[in-house]
Design a protein around this nucleic acid. Structure first.
Length: 287
DNA sequence: TCCCAGGTAGATC
DNA sequence: GATCTACATGGG
């Protein structure tokens, strides 16, 4: 058992799990949390001093330290973001300990394809169904069976109709395509530039700008991305509409495009855009 | 019954 | 290049 005494200013698991970036985890009331990554899971006990990871030190360093993005200096990044916009001071302070998880790339691709036009509880349900039906049983904690998320190989056997039977609706064809694409991958996507990676991902049918940005941010650790969904659009227009309009060829247009909001976010927040986006998302949800 | 939910592709102008 | 709409399903 690895005792890691880490304060909640640096790591706040409750806030991370509620931040909308991760869909597979368990909260054990009054005791702690279960985190899941590939074929690994860990029970993280919460006490007044901090967190205790119920795993070896080796596993903590090799898996959970990376998953939780603990190497990155969020204090420095938070200050950069506040310098860009002082209005985020309060939400960053209240959301202290939030981090961008580095999750499984295939899981992110599938999860965010599923996410289109679905509420967060519905996404969790569909994604968990997939894990229960096609993942592997990897553990048993506090009466909960823990499943891994299926790999592309696990899902290779499924037809489009199988996904429809599982209530994925029109996303069925997209899921089928994404699995096929993943099976046929023959190069290391991690070595690609942001632009090339984006180009590859967006070539999958059913994968557009928003899903690509989420996969790049939460799966590939590309923090220079700024996903625009309905929430972000509302928040960004509320905070920056006049500034965004100044950048447009025709500042009088009725509808501002997602890509224009994305450009502004990337320009303003640069390498911290992905993290800024999480704070903005939280800022908007609390209005 | 109607409307919306962490969107996207395809048609149309 | 901008705008409109169908696409499945579930929940309020």
């Amino acid at each position: 058992m690895y005792h890691l005494l880490i304060n909640r200013e640096k790591l706040n698991i409750a806030k991370i799990l509620k931040s909308g970036q991760v869909f597979r985890y368990e909260v054990i009331d009054g005791k702690g949390y279960i985190l899941i990554h590939k074929l690994n899971y860990v029970f993280v006990e919460e006490n007044k001093h901090g967190y205790v990871f119920h795993c070896s030190e080796e596993e903590f360093i090799n898996i959970w330290y990376i998953y939780l993005d603990l190497e990155r200096d969020y204090v420095r990044i938070n200050q950069i973001i506040i310098d860009k916009d002082k209005r985020l001071t309060k939400v960053i302070d209240e959301f202290e300990g939030m981090r961008i998880l580095k999750q499984d790339q295939f899981e992110m691709l599938i999860t965010f394809i599923i996410s289109q036009s679905k509420s967060i509880p519905q996404i969790r349900k569909l994604v968990n169904n997939l894990a229960v039906c096609y993942g592997e049983e990897i553990g048993y904690v506090y009466g909960e069976k823990i499943y891994s998320f299926p790999t592309a190989q696990h899902l290779q056997q499924l037809t489009e109709d199988d996904y429809r039977t599982m209530k994925f609706g029109y996303r069925a064809a997209y899921l089928y395509e994404a699995v096929k694409w993943s099976i046929n991958l023959n190069k290391d996507m991690n070595s690609l530039s942001d632009i090339d990676l984006k180009q590859q991902l967006v070539s999958i049918k059913g994968v557009g700008n928003k899903v690509v940005a989420c996969v790049m941010l939460f799966g590939y650790g590309r923090h220079n991305t700024f996903p625009i969904d309905v929430w972000m659009k509302r928040i960004m227009l509320q905070l920056y509409e006049s500034e965004i309009r100044k950048e447009l060829k025709n500042p009088e247009v009725k509808n501002i495009r997602d890509s224009q909001i994305e450009s502004y976010g990337l320009k303003l927040y640069g390498e911290t855009a992905g993290i800024a986006q999480q704070y903005l998302f939280e800022y908007g949800r609390n209005i």
